[in-house]
């Protein structure tokens, strides 16, 4: 545990020591900020229309029209940003040979992999925490559903976890960060679009595709509906890729 935290802390501070980390944070905040402001403006316009309508406001729902689309957008932004955050995790260490320090220290490979995972998740937690002021704005202006917001953040976190675990494994396959980025992003995109492929196919294929799609599994969560099968999906997804990374790092010793 101590070792995991030590590695995680180093990874986390490494993000703030390089322009990449700051750049990613700024870009993330800028894009989510733009979407947020645009959604709020749109929704408040619709609200105003509804409020003066003689039929009352039967169907306007802050959670469905604002919170869910906002987190849907955030998920897509994460899809682009997380691979850029994870590309260096192993690739850079291999390139600078710093990995040898980890491999020759009295720590387990599991601790190395988890440390890097937790470090990247820490940075993502910081990123997500930086979006909390949007929620504050929402609470100030309207009455969003705390439960929906909370489960949406859970969704973002689980989704990011899945992204990071994929990034981790692709990063361990190459010394070149750009290659790692392309591999990671490509793989995520593939898993992402399984959801689209699902609607284009039928029957058994569709079922399997829909089941495996990263995007489909978070829809309920951003609606405030927590399914154990969805949480289990993300956790098992993360576990699998962390295990694959573990095997890959072990293989460094046996190449």
């Amino acid at each position: 545990m101590r070792n995991i935290l030590a590695i995680a802390r180093r990874e986390l501070s490494a993000y703030f020591a390089t322009p990449v980390g700051w750049l990613a944070l700024s870009a993330f905040l800028l894009i989510t900020g733009f979407f947020f402001a645009a959604l709020v403006s749109l929704y408040s316009m619709q609200s105003a229309e509804q409020a003066f309508s003689p039929y009352g406001a039967p169907d306007m729902n802050l959670n469905e029209y604002l919170v869910a689309p906002f987190f849907g957008n955030t998920a897509i932004i994460l899809l682009f940003i997380v691979p850029a955050l994870t590309m260096r995790l192993f690739a850079e260490d291999r390139k600078t040979r710093a990995l040898e320090l980890l491999l020759t220290s009295p720590i387990t490979t599991t601790e190395i992999v988890l440390g890097k995972f937790v470090g990247a998740m820490g940075f993502i937690a910081v990123m997500l925490a930086c979006t909390l002021h949007y929620v504050g704005v929402l609470f100030y202006l309207g009455d969003p559903d705390v439960g929906v917001v909370a489960s949406s953040y859970l969704a973002m976190f689980l989704l990011s976890g899945a992204f990071v675990s994929v990034g981790l494994v692709t990063s361990s396959f190459t010394e070149n960060q750009v290659v790692s980025l392309v591999l990671g992003f490509g793989m995520l995109l593939l898993l992402w679009v399984l959801g689209w492929a699902e609607s284009a196919s039928t029957g058994l294929t569709a079922e399997v595709l829909g089941f495996a799609s990263l995007i489909n599994r978070m829809e309920d969560l951003t609606k405030g509906l927590i399914h154990t099968r969805d949480v289990a999906y993300y956790l098992s997804f993360i576990s699998f890729f962390l295990f694959a990374t573990h095997q890959r790092v072990e293989a460094f010793r046996w190449s």
Binding site: R2, N3, A6, I7, R10, S13, A14, A17, T18, T96, R97, A98, L99, E100, L101, L102, T104, S105, P106, I107
Partner: peptide, 29 residues
């Protein structure tokens, strides 16, 4: 590994780190 101090051919450095932090990190590990 606890008993060995190892300096590889290419020192396993994190170029972005401050010397003190880096050595302390190694100590932690």
């Amino acid at each position: 590994k606890r008993r060995i101090g190892y300096l590889p051919e290419v020192p396993p450095l994190y170029p972005n780190m401050v010397v003190r932090d880096y050595v302390a990190f190694a100590g932690q590990l």
